Amino acid sequence: MDIENTVLDILTDLTGNDDLKDTMDLDLFETGILDSMATVQMLLELQGQLDIEVPVSEFERTEWATPNKIIAKVKELQ
């Protein structure tokens, strides 16, 4: 399974932003693209589609702030 495309598809579905592939280091929280509710949805989708566990107690926003960081964290958790 292609982790990068799966993550980008999930983010695109959640945010409606089709340009994320061009802005892989954009801070999704600072720009308001991701809020707390969308973050929870993202984590649930990642868990469902990629079969990873992301304990909320271990969620550090700065480690999940950009598409590149999200992809790196998912790869780390697999």
Rank of each mutant, 00 (worst) to 15 (best):
M1H: 05
M1I: 09
M1V: 15
D2I: 05
D2Q: 09
E4S: 03
N5A: 10
V7F: 06
D9G: 02
I10C: 04
I10S: 00
L11M: 04
L11R: 01
T12K: 08
T12Y: 06
D13R: 13
N17L: 07
N17V: 07
N17C: 09
D18N: 14
L20N: 06
K21Y: 10
K21D: 09
D22N: 13
D22K: 13
T23W: 10
D25Q: 07
D25V: 00
L26G: 00
L26T: 09
L26A: 03
D27Y: 03
F29H: 03
E30Y: 10
E30C: 05
T31V: 07
T31C: 04
T31K: 11
G32R: 08
S36C: 14
M37K: 09
M37F: 13
M37E: 11
M37A: 08
A38C: 05
A38M: 14
A38R: 13
A38V: 10
A38P: 01
T39R: 12
T39P: 12
T39K: 11
Q41I: 04
Q41N: 15
Q41Y: 11
M42A: 05
M42E: 00
L44A: 15
E45W: 02
L46K: 00
Q47D: 12
Q47E: 15
Q49K: 15
Q49I: 08
Q49F: 08
L50T: 12
L50A: 12
D51L: 05
D51N: 15
I52T: 08
I52E: 07
I52F: 07
I52R: 04
E53H: 10
E53S: 11
E53Q: 15
E53T: 02
P55N: 14
P55D: 14
P55Y: 01
V56F: 14
S57P: 03
S57T: 12
S57Q: 13
F59E: 05
F59W: 12
R61C: 03
R61F: 09
R61L: 15
T62N: 13
T62M: 12
W64M: 03
A65I: 12
T66R: 03
P67N: 12
P67K: 02
P67Q: 01
N68H: 08
K69H: 05
K69E: 10
K69W: 01
I70K: 02
I71E: 01
K73I: 05
K73E: 10
V74P: 07
V74M: 13
V74N: 05
E76W: 07
L77F: 02
Q78R: 11
Q78Y: 04
